[in-house]
Design a protein around this nucleic acid. Sequence first.
DNA 1: GTGGTCTAGACCACA
DNA 2: GTGGTCTAGACCACT
Lengths: 244, 244, 244, 244
Amino acid sequence: MSDRNTNLEPIRQIAAHELVVEQLRRAMDAGQFRPGDRLPSERDLAEMLEVSRLTVHTAIVVLEREGRIVVRRGRTGGFIVQPLQHSPAEIRQILKIHRAAVFDALDFRVILEVAAARRAAERRRKKDITALRSLISLMDAAMEVSLANQTPHNVFEFERLDSNFHEAVAVASQNESLHRAVVTTRPKVWAPVGSIWWRLEENSHEHHAAIVDGIEAGDPDAAAQAMEEHIANTRQNIDKWIRR
Amino acid sequence: MSDRNTNLEPIRQIAAHELVVEQLRRAMDAGQFRPGDRLPSERDLAEMLEVSRLTVHTAIVVLEREGRIVVRRGRTGGFIVQPLQHSPAEIRQILKIHRAAVFDALDFRVILEVAAARRAAERRRKKDITALRSLISLMDAAMEVSLANQTPHNVFEFERLDSNFHEAVAVASQNESLHRAVVTTRPKVWAPVGSIWWRLEENSHEHHAAIVDGIEAGDPDAAAQAMEEHIANTRQNIDKWIRR
Amino acid sequence: MSDRNTNLEPIRQIAAHELVVEQLRRAMDAGQFRPGDRLPSERDLAEMLEVSRLTVHTAIVVLEREGRIVVRRGRTGGFIVQPLQHSPAEIRQILKIHRAAVFDALDFRVILEVAAARRAAERRRKKDITALRSLISLMDAAMEVSLANQTPHNVFEFERLDSNFHEAVAVASQNESLHRAVVTTRPKVWAPVGSIWWRLEENSHEHHAAIVDGIEAGDPDAAAQAMEEHIANTRQNIDKWIRR
Amino acid sequence: MSDRNTNLEPIRQIAAHELVVEQLRRAMDAGQFRPGDRLPSERDLAEMLEVSRLTVHTAIVVLEREGRIVVRRGRTGGFIVQPLQHSPAEIRQILKIHRAAVFDALDFRVILEVAAARRAAERRRKKDITALRSLISLMDAAMEVSLANQTPHNVFEFERLDSNFHEAVAVASQNESLHRAVVTTRPKVWAPVGSIWWRLEENSHEHHAAIVDGIEAGDPDAAAQAMEEHIANTRQNIDKWIRR
DNA sequence: GTGGTCTAGACCACA
DNA sequence: GTGGTCTAGACCACT
């Protein structure tokens, strides 16, 4: 093996404020901050992120220029998270462009989350099951409201709960590496498109229930299969969107 | 869900020379530079990493103080990679301390690499199989030499080939996310300990062959099972070391 | 010319409320608000100046401490403009201190306003002449009243008209740069002293008339000469005051 | 006069870094920093302008985005002033657009600088004449070089000397207000266009000489007339450019 | 020594 | 109290 494959890649000194931008973007993508929410104040963010206010401010300016937040000044001011506004045509376009990356991420999600469901069922802990059950009932409630009157807010709420559910399964797997991988991989499927109503899939709550049932029953195969179907369902929905 | 779980983590601004240190450390851990090898010259590293020579120099000083390289001046000079020198007792100690992290990483490796083997068998491509076969024959050769006269150099060579083999399986899975996860996860098992001879496991070449056979036969279950046994074997070896 | 004459002057960042103070002071100096007048309400000023009420309030407090306005509360309340109260001795003192600056400004005024009168005569426009004539008749009226019963109020009125007259000549010159220079330079002569009765010069109305006659006749030299005499007259009056 | 003409204009809080931008732009327009020159370092500018380095830096970023300077890093780095690069067609276009403002400024320049020449002749001081003579000889030298080989650098040099000459006349007028007005008005004629070779007018050195002769002879009319012809010449050149 | 960036603290205008 | 901005000092990477 004489060809030295020295994979040394260029160093990119990443500015602190860029890291802040990335982290805030990721938090919004992951649904930790939903459209309409206010981000923490500059001072709070500075403390949480352990950087100076100036650094936070610089990051905020970037996010504002991107249109992901709106800055409101004064006593009642703050940074208001904006919805990623895409028309259905744009979404289709974006999905087509990122098709490869999205399906790559989805395929990887199957590996990670099916394994997570399996481990969770093998190592079932009471507290994990309790957490999952409570998330399911919250999602049921949110979905009912959403389906009744399609207000966007509840859609965002549902999305956040859905995110939390999948993370809770990863936590239940009791493998920290797996947990982290799940958390960082999930948003990659949705990030290019943003939050949109059609992610509210009709049968997802049945899948969720089946997953928890499998975990609670200590049946790894059942839990794994339910998760696999769940993600396959998502894949089909995206497929339909692209073909539409 | 009133408890806002804002997972914002502190920003860690990393100095450019630290990034250089990390990248060189990782390259040495991954076997790209083996003990006894010379790193590229300061000038070349600066160009490859797209930083100034001063930055490279600072990084080199750090690595020298860590004892991971030795700086030799003059005509035959350069930065000579040193073996991580741990006594068996130290290794045991280190493994005990990092026990949780090591087994967490191993468990995650099972998930990732078993899935990779399965996907590789499902999606078998000629070029992947050719690459895997050639790596196996190189490893056979290296092992013979190593077993004959236990020179460390060939051990390192074997390690590097082993690394390449596992990455080649990941590549054969044809999922980029999975590939990247495998590459970043593997070193986490060994990083705390460094390269040591006992990683030369007697039966590993049988496992490797079985994995490639499964992939070539288009038999996902066989490939997956072989990979699972292979990693389980590693786990047992580590277990034995800790108990010793 | 190796001595780099980099005329970079220190930046003076001016607080918004200071800008408000300055603008109100200048408006009072220019006679837009005369002693006894009420400034617009805080709310109105905030709207006109496009700042918050707090900022206006801060400015008002400053002006009150300076004694330039009195704040009266209640139904008939408001901000009452006060006359700048200087005794003749104080005025003489002030003039002596600012002597150089005042004569420098007067000299510059000659240049600007003589040129303005000349240009106005060269480029005479009906509407300018009409405006000048109407100002002259208003000044005549104000002067008669003032001379009859020396009430300060009409003195201020006269001053304001005098200001307007000189600005009208500048406008008639139809050179915008010149116009702006005249407007900013005139107050510099009087600013240190404030508004005082002796500015009511007996022969000024004759000068004014001569200036307009020159302009109307399209006689640049006549207009210029009249303006020159007019300002020379002012200079003599100031001189007398200082020597007194 | 019942119509209260309360000329209160909106307060514009001007950021310190904007003031820095303006001042540096003006200094470059005025020829204090010529294309190819290096501005003072951030640290020096901060000290000269009495602001923090951050404020200077922010201003520099703006000027860089405008393309007026280029930033070079490292030991030999700094801020390199760029020439305003306009094609003759663009210059014509720009001049047409700003025609009114340019001629307004030119007209005002006649007033100011003719008066300055006149005052200088009336109040002639030895040191002023010495300064003017030395500037003329420097300009002669620069012009010879420029005409010989039309290198841009000498053109910029000539421009700077030309600027200095006119300022020196203003200084010789011994009126500070006039001096300041001349300095701020001259660049307004050229600012929209930038530095270009055709400002090198063939007969300008004769005019310059005539102006100084008039001043030295104590002949205000001669000095004034020479200055008037000089600026009229500039006006004609611009006129020709627009019509071309 | 240059520019690039961050920190810590402060004051201000806003609502 | 919120964001907007500036200061003073520091460390770093570049050349």
